Amino acid sequence: MKRTICLLLIYLINVVLIFSQPKDFLSDIYYFIENTSVFEVNQEEGHTPFVTYSSVGEALLNNREKAANFMSLNGTWKFYYSDTPEGIQADFFRENFNDKKWNTTRVPSNWEMEGFGDPLFRNVRTPFPPNPPYVPGEYNPTGSYRRTFIVPSGWKDKEVFLRMEKTASASFVWINGKEVGYNEGGQEPAEYNITKYLKSGRNTIAVLVIKYSDGYYLEDQDYWRLAGIFDDVWLFATPKTHIFDWYSVTDLDENYSNSTLNLTADIRNYLSISSNDLTVRATLYDSEKKIVRTMVSEKITVAPGGKEKVSLKSEIINPEKWSAESPALYHLTFELLNNSGKILGVISGRIGFKETEIRGQVFYLNGVPVKLNGTNSHMQHPDLGHTMDEAT
């Protein structure tokens, strides 16, 4: 009897382990694209996007294209199109896969604007009979993407992240043949820590994009239904201990004259040991980049693999106020300093001093009632589709 019970327990444990194991991406694509409980895999927590610079001067220029810690993956990619996920080449993500006979495409772009698939316009309903979370099996446009890149030598001993701004609607990512992550939803970014997948020299990234997933039902609206990697793809590197996120809150006084400036920064530590006696120095600059205020935090310790929040607060006398008619912006830098005062990294951003309120169903900006008019305007370029250029 005891032996039977033990065997039964072993069987049940094995069953639980089997079903709790994450599925290989291509072993059952529909587990991902028709499963409302799975909309992302292995993604980083959402945060303000920025590049870490080595000096305040660089951070104030904030030209990420020239930053040592930035690499764009925009450009020409190898591309293979299929009308269904089943039509892809099963080993396309492997490093040694031969893609010489594939087409090429621009990233970012919608593949319909590049001559693949069919651009469809719908004002409300899906282009297929809706049956969430299921998607059509007979026609579900699918694109396979590949390209190579070389990691800069200066990125050794840093954390490296891949950020894909917009991909419609489901996407799977591999680096050097290894599964990295999954995302659903065409209008939000996906970010992955790819440090452990990289090697020195040439690396290969492969992405599988599927037009219709259960997440597609959330984007069922009045616009052109287009797919693909249609916004920037980029890599960025950070020190092992770095500023991960930041935000600001401006609180104007009762006369909408002076303001309390509240700043918050999250510090992350990817080391296997604690990062001790760190400080954050935040500096506010006016539009001409003249220093208005400098704030320094208390010393903090960040545990291995941990995250700590730093808060700073200061009174700013009569700052120039932000409004739609006069969008005054201030520059802001955050420096992360070690226990000897050495700069570990610098980030930057821009903020406006303003206060919004709703009083008696009236919207107020800086104490002034404002009437808002809205229009139904979608991002749509006649040649680029949902990929918008700076000029447009």
Rank of each mutant, 00 (worst) to 15 (best):
T4V: 15
L7M: 13
I10L: 15
V15I: 15
V15G: 00
V16L: 14
I18H: 06
P22T: 10
S27T: 14
D28L: 06
D28G: 02
Y30R: 15
N35E: 10
S37R: 12
F39M: 06
V41P: 00
E44I: 14
P49Y: 12
P49F: 13
L60F: 03
L61Q: 14
R64E: 12
F70T: 04
T76D: 09
F79W: 05
Y81I: 07
D83Y: 03
T84Y: 04
T84H: 01
G87T: 07
N98A: 06
N98C: 02
K100S: 15
K101L: 12
W102P: 05
T104W: 00
P108H: 05
E112H: 01
E112Q: 14
E114D: 08
G117K: 03
F121L: 10
V124W: 09
T126A: 14
F128M: 01
V135E: 03
P136I: 05
E138V: 11
G143W: 09
G143I: 12
G143P: 10
S144V: 12
Y145I: 09
R147A: 09
F149N: 06
F149L: 07
I150S: 05
G154E: 12
W155E: 11
W155T: 08
L162W: 04
R163E: 13
S169M: 08
S171R: 08
N176P: 01
K178S: 08
Y182E: 03
G185N: 04
G185V: 12
E191D: 03
L198W: 05
K199G: 04
G201P: 02
T204V: 15
I205A: 02
A206Y: 06
V207I: 15
L208R: 02
G215Q: 05
Y216S: 15
Q221K: 10
D222H: 10
Y223P: 00
W224D: 03
L226E: 00
A227I: 02
F230T: 02
D232A: 04
P239N: 07
P239T: 02
Y247P: 00
S248K: 00
V249G: 00
T250V: 10
D253I: 12
N255L: 12
S257L: 13
A265S: 14
Y270V: 07
S274L: 03
T279E: 14
E288G: 00
K290T: 14
M295S: 09
V296H: 00
E298T: 14
T301L: 06
V302D: 02
P304W: 05
G305T: 13
S323G: 04
P327F: 08
L329C: 01
Y330Q: 08
T333A: 03
T333C: 04
L337Q: 03
I343K: 11
L344Y: 02
V346G: 07
I351W: 01
G352N: 05
T356V: 13
T356Y: 12
G360E: 12
Q361C: 05
Q361T: 13
V370E: 11
V370Y: 00
G374A: 13
N376Y: 08
M379T: 01
D389C: 03
E390S: 13
T392K: 05
